[in-house]
């Protein structure tokens, strides 16, 4: 029994797609600044990279607020349960048309691998990029000022962190784009992130349960 479920709310979709767009542009302009290719022209690349960076920071601030306010942050609490099954699915089951090992519900939209990877994305990659990016922009100020303790010898370390993060992000996006196609159908994941709705297995039972019970049940299982 399938049922259409409202999985991704308006803000979540807006946040996801504008973040995707901004990160794509940041990568494009960023690797030009890094010297990998010429496209926008160096001066424009720097200028618009910086503007896009501010836009991303603002977006992230709103997203953090949204996650806290709605409790959606709990979606990213990692779990060891079913991780092995999920890995097995991607490595073997998927080729045999085996069913997904975990069930997608409104309260648990992410499979255990997604939880882990997105959490890493949120607490490691993004902070690394934002922090090193802001230092990249502002590192000259302390050096030109009079507070010796704040002086940074060279932009080198900052730049290397920023570049390393960028490479990881690009790899993440490649895999992420591919994994879109591994939903119930090839396009079901994409449709869900565009419209917000996805046809899921009937979850009437779990929908009846209160949020707290589900969470505590999961915790107990761990």
């Amino acid at each position: 029994m399938k049922q259409k479920v409202y999985l991704y709310r308006a803000f979540e979709r807006f946040w996801h797609w504008s973040q995707a767009l901004i990160i794509f542009f940041l990568a494009l302009s960023g690797f030009e600044i890094h010297g990998s290719f010429s496209f926008l022209g160096y001066q424009s690349a720097v200028k618009y990279h910086n503007m896009a960076a501010y836009a991303l920071v603002i977006l992230i601030i709103f997203a953090i607020f949204w996650h806290l306010a709605t409790g959606e942050w709990k979606q990213y609490v990692p779990t060891a349960k079913n991780i092995k099954a999920q890995i097995n699915y991607y490595l073997l089951g998927i080729f045999k048309n085996a069913p997904h090992p975990t069930r997608k519900t409104v309260l648990s939209k992410l499979n255990p691998l997604q939880r882990l990877v997105y959490l890493g994305f949120k607490i490691l990659i993004i902070p690394t990029m934002v922090l090193s990016g802001l230092l990249y922009m502002f590192y000259r100020y302390p050096q030109n000022g009079s507070i010796e303790g704040l002086n940074i010898e060279s932009i080198k370390t900052i730049a290397l962190f920023h570049t390393a993060g960028a490479f990881i992000l690009v790899a993440f996006v490649i895999v992420h784009l591919y994994l879109i196609t591994t939903g119930t159908t090839i396009t079901s994941n994409l449709k869900a992130m565009v419209t917000g709705y996805e046809e899921l297995e009937d979850t009437t039972k779990s929908q009846l349960e209160s949020k707290n019970e589900v969470i505590s049940a999961e915790v107990n299982n761990e």
């Binding site: 600044i33 890094h34 010297g35 160096y42 060279s154 932009i155 080198k156 730049a159 290397l160 570049t163 390393a164 960028a166 490479f167 990881i168 690009v170 790899a171 490649i174």
Partner: peptide, 21 residues
């Protein structure tokens, strides 16, 4: 004697980065 964006890069990060991509 200094790091300049676009001119300079770390060969290690460059190799590892293109590697994971």
């Amino acid at each position: 004697d200094f790091y300049m964006p676009a001119r300079d890069f770390s060969p290690v990060i460059e190799t590892a980065g293109t590697g994971i991509i």
